[in-house]
Design a protein around this nucleic acid. Structure first.
Ligand SMILES: [Mn+2]
Ligand SMILES: [Mn+2]
Ligand SMILES: [Zn+2]
Ligand SMILES: [Zn+2]
Lengths: 139, 139
DNA sequence: CATAGAATTGGAATAATTCTAAACTGGACT
DNA sequence: AGTCCAGTTTAGAATTATTCCAATTCTATG
């Protein structure tokens, strides 16, 4: 386990798209596969750079369209981190949080079971979601 | 306690600016006082709107300049929330987190002592900061 | 093959923020 | 009071991420 990058066949990618109600076009398959297998929290721009090297032509509009389609279908999540002006896309769908290495800029997934949060709220709040961003350095 | 808005004299504002090494100009005093006394997590645009009603002329560039000066001097913090394209400015300097009311869009400060976090990290990470954003509704 | 709906495209539009270079201010020194 | 100057403010242009738009191209189905 624990290899950050996995190998998923094109057929499997197609199946996942279809199951989510997304028409599996060439561009969508390529972009989704790239994000699932070869990328780590990429930005639209990073995806565009990769696409430019690996495809005859993919427009930036299509990158954004596709990302929005994938997010809306629940196949990706978008993260808006304070330190960056651009959204990063997250393939991990399970509840999890993030650690930002302040030296390298790397973003690391922290699974939900690694953080226990105890709320002693003064107000009566019904919490439906919680985003935690840790910052620091790695030994 | 607990009134969200407090009254601070212009002299006190000036003193705080000077103490932080910030030249207390007319515009800086006005903007800082507005944020400290009358605003709640405002955006640059909201500050501009208020300024337009209360001053002969304050340029948007000055709003941004001032906010950056105040942030750099440690007198304000800037928050970059996922749900908004614009930065909001936070007068609360103590360690705290935020609750976003998904119905009203209101942002509420959650003091640090209301959240206990227990980390069981698999990796060796040295955490220096932690941002927590809660989302939900209020009873 | 025809066709219609969906997807893709290039370029324009939008919006938050920063940059630039010129004009202004207010205190320090005559 | 008058001059000077560093620091501040200003208008408007520039930048950048993302969305919008209208035209073109695909693709699945009949
Ligand atoms: Mn979206
Ligand atoms: Mn800043
Ligand atoms: Zn993640
Ligand atoms: Zn706050």
């Amino acid at each position: 386990m624990n290899s950050k990058f996995q190998n998923i066949s094109v057929e499997e990618i197609e199946r996942r798209l279809k199951d989510a109600g997304v028409n599996p076009t060439t561009q969508r398959i390529a972009i989704f596969k790239y994000i699932l297998c070869d990328a780590d929290h990429p930005t639209a721009d990073q995806i565009k750079s990769w696409a430019d090297k690996n495809f005859p032509k993919v427009s930036l509009a299509t990158i954004y369209n596709t990302l929005n389609v994938l997010v809306d279908a629940g196949l990706l999540r978008e993260l808006n981190l304070p330190e960056s002006d651009s959204v990063v896309y997250d393939k991990t769908l399970s509840e999890h949080h993030h650690f930002l290495d302040q030296q390298t800029g790397h973003l690391i997934d922290i699974e939900g079971d690694q953080i226990r949060v105890e709320l002693k709220l003064k107000r009566q709040l019904k919490i439906s979601e919680m985003d935690i961003l840790l910052r620091g350095t790695q030994n």
